[in-house]
Amino acid sequence: MLEHRVQGVDHAAFPTFDPAGTVRFYRDVLGFPVVHSICAAGWGPEDHPDFVHFFFDIGRGDRIAFFYYFGLEPVHDAGRGDVYARFGPDVPEFFVRSRHLAIHVQDEADLLEYRRRLDDSAWPVEMQIRHETIESIYTHDPNGYMVELTRAMRPVTPQEDLDANLTIDALLDVVAEPDPTFGKLLARKAELIVERAADWEPAR
């Protein structure tokens, strides 16, 4: 096993054509502090525009960041998707909604606090869902990016880490063969459970 040295998200970056809406949403509605920004004149071999790269703290020093490019018009019409990626009518809705950023909160009180902040804004909560082990609220930011805030309803158990690893090993075996299916995954995973689960000890 390789030594695991990384320390969380430094920043995840997204383009925006609406810096005013973006600052209202993240700083003024959610209360995420602005912690860093870079104002850069365009340079480089491409015809790169001047830009502002600005960052909001999303907790524990992790950050979400945006690029605003001066003079750049939206690269596509809005429609389904977000300002970065647009999807035609042939793309199913579950796929369009699959990519999102989920930000962790400590408990139900904090989740409801962020729900209150969003519901008082132009970007109210669109869904609040208990997935049994987590509870989440969802909205879309002014750029169309899906944002989730989530709390754990119980701690993750050690056996779930084992299960996740058996799932991934089974998945890699199944996708290495033609026509992967969920049924084949469950069959391969059953074999791995029989081979490996009996001797498993929770890590101390």
Partner: peptide, 13 residues
């Protein structure tokens, strides 16, 4: 439903 549809870990061949 979220639990029900994700509870099966494996099914023998």
């Amino acid at each position: 439903h979220a639990v029900w549809y994700s509870a099966v870990a494996g099914v023998a061949r």
